[in-house]
Write a protein that binds this DNA or RNA. Structure first.
Length: 466
DNA sequence: CTATGGCACGGATT
DNA sequence: AATCCGTGCCATAG
């Protein structure tokens, strides 16, 4: 029932404490920021100091960002990763007010989540009173970059005519990943086509192909498609190639120009990372540095003035104020607890998946959350919550979901990909089974088919003759 | 007849 | 308790 928690971090071990730590643990840094803002707004006992202290060692940090001590500790054994909580902000919030450009000091690409990225582009084109609606739409993008709510619903929510929401959607759709915020993949493609038309020529009938049936297109039933539109199958084949090369049904995924239609899950670039992994030095045996991003610029604490005020307050007010103080200090402790757990978790992950982090997907070791929870002495659900919905930035700049560290089949899939990339003659699925088992991966024929689908690799008969 | 994709079941994982 | 994943069986396309 109760979980094992290191004693030094917390003293009063209440169920409220546990519950809140759990919730905080499952939040991404984005959400955490909101949560903290909300708590600050409603609890007068909580205050935020401008000075920044390292959340790990409590030393003062001069110009913000990374703690010089924790990020470069003197005596860490070789191979041990350095894990610490960082307060450096990656992206400023979502407000219509600012348009500031942060350059990352390391010079690596600025990363922000898709919604923010788009919002920044469209702000000038949208009337201030409509920005709320735009922001609302953008927060309901799914991971493919498509809209998850019905326009009608949004219109009703803000008491505005649907046409106005539609107009906003049109502006969003034309922003950088062209087609974002479309309601369907078909819509997304249509918009992309329109935009292409403005800057160059597109083949005739392309719109018809999209209108007539995407499902036919993705199943490659060109003959049927040709019959419906009334052109030759040959034309359809050309059009399909054009569409595959120039359009992207999932604007949120950044793999442009890849012919394979069902894009693999590996490339979602527009994510704001919750954790950043980098390497210290270039040697093979260099240390890994892991920053757990903490979205607060400042130090959170219980306001000492408030504490003093409590003792001087009249007895009927005292009750409420005391409660506020309890809440505030609980909140701070829970945040510490959360960060502490994240640190321990990332430490273990970094140890186990070092090869994966440095050398790529082939070296992912199949570890389970259950095993890790045992090692850390916490409940399985704790790990699950901590891992869910979080993104990690790897030393090579790629951003992946934290759950990818627990992907059981990734290395097998990479092996499969490798075989197929090097093949001279298309292997059938059953042949692939044999080849994979030589490499130590024992999977069923049916499973190979599934892996292929996941990676967006076509079946053998359609592979080579392209 | 062979190769593949769909559906559904069972066991593992969360 | 809910979900995910590998797998077997069967229908279908070539």
């Amino acid at each position: 029932m109760f979980q094992h928690i290191p004693v030094h971090t917390i003293r009063p071990l209440t169920t409220a404490h546990l519950a809140q730590t759990m919730t905080l643990l499952s939040l991404t840094s984005n959400e955490l920021q909101e949560q903290i803002d909300a708590e600050l707004a409603q609890n007068p006992a909580l205050e935020m100091l401008d000075e920044i202290r390292c959340p790990t060692c409590h030393r003062l940090i001069r110009d913000g960002g990374v703690c010089p001590v924790c990020s470069r500790p003197a005596n860490v054994a070789d191979g041990e990763p350095i894990v610490f909580v960082s307060t450096r902000e990656i992206v400023s919030g979502f407000g219509p007010s600012e348009a500031e450009e942060d350059r990352d000091d390391a010079g690596s690409a600025l990363v922000e989540d898709l919604a923010t990225y788009v919002f920044r582009q469209i702000t000038p084109d949208i009337a201030p009173e409509d920005r709320r609606i735009a922001a609302h739409l953008l927060t309901h993008l799914n991971e493919d970059g498509l809209l998850d709510v019905a326009l009608m619903e949004v219109a009703m929510y803000y008491h505005v005519p649907v046409s106005r929401v539609e107009a906003i959607q049109r502006i969003i759709q034309r922003a950088d990943p062209v087609g974002v915020g479309s309601s369907t993949t078909q819509d997304a493609l249509r918009v992309q086509l329109e935009v292409l038309k403005e800057s160059g020529s597109v083949p005739e009938y392309a719109d018809q192909v999209i209108d007539a049936g995407l499902d036919l297109l993705s199943r490659r039933q060109y003959n049927e498609l040709a019959r419906r539109i009334g052109i030759t199958a040959e034309r359809v084949r050309d059009l399909a190639k054009f569409i595959g090369e120039n359009l992207n049904p999932f604007p949120g995924r950044s793999f442009w120009g890849d012919v394979r239609q069902p894009a693999g899950p590996q490339t979602q670039v527009y994510y704001r990372p919750d954790i950043i992994v980098s390497r210290l030095g270039d040697h093979d045996d260099c240390q890994l540095v892991i920053e757990i991003l903490f979205p607060i610029w400042g130090t959170l604490r219980v306001n000492p003035l408030y504490r003093q005020a409590v003792s001087e307050a009249s007895s009927d007010q005292k009750e409420n104020m005391k409660e506020d103080m309890e809440r505030a200090s609980l909140f701070v402790k829970c945040l510490q607890q959360r960060n502490h757990t994240m640190q321990r978790l990332m430490h273990k992950i970094a140890l186990a998946q070092r090869d994966f982090i440095l050398r790529g997907e082939k070296h992912l070791k199949p570890i389970t959350r259950a095993a890790l929870s045992k090692e850390l002495g916490v409940h399985e659900s704790t790990i699950s919550r901590a891992v869910a919905n979080k993104a990690v930035q790897l030393p090579n700049g790629r951003i992946i979901p934290l759950s990818e560290f627990f992907d059981r089949s990734l290395s097998a899939r990479m092996a499969l990909k490798e075989i197929i990339d090097q093949e001279n003659h298309p292997f059938s699925d059953s042949e692939l089974v044999a080849l994979l088992s030589e490499k130590g991966y024992d999977v069923a024929r049916r499973t190979v088919a599934k892996y292929r689908a996941m990676e967006g690799i076509l079946p053998a008969n359609l592979r080579r003759p392209c």
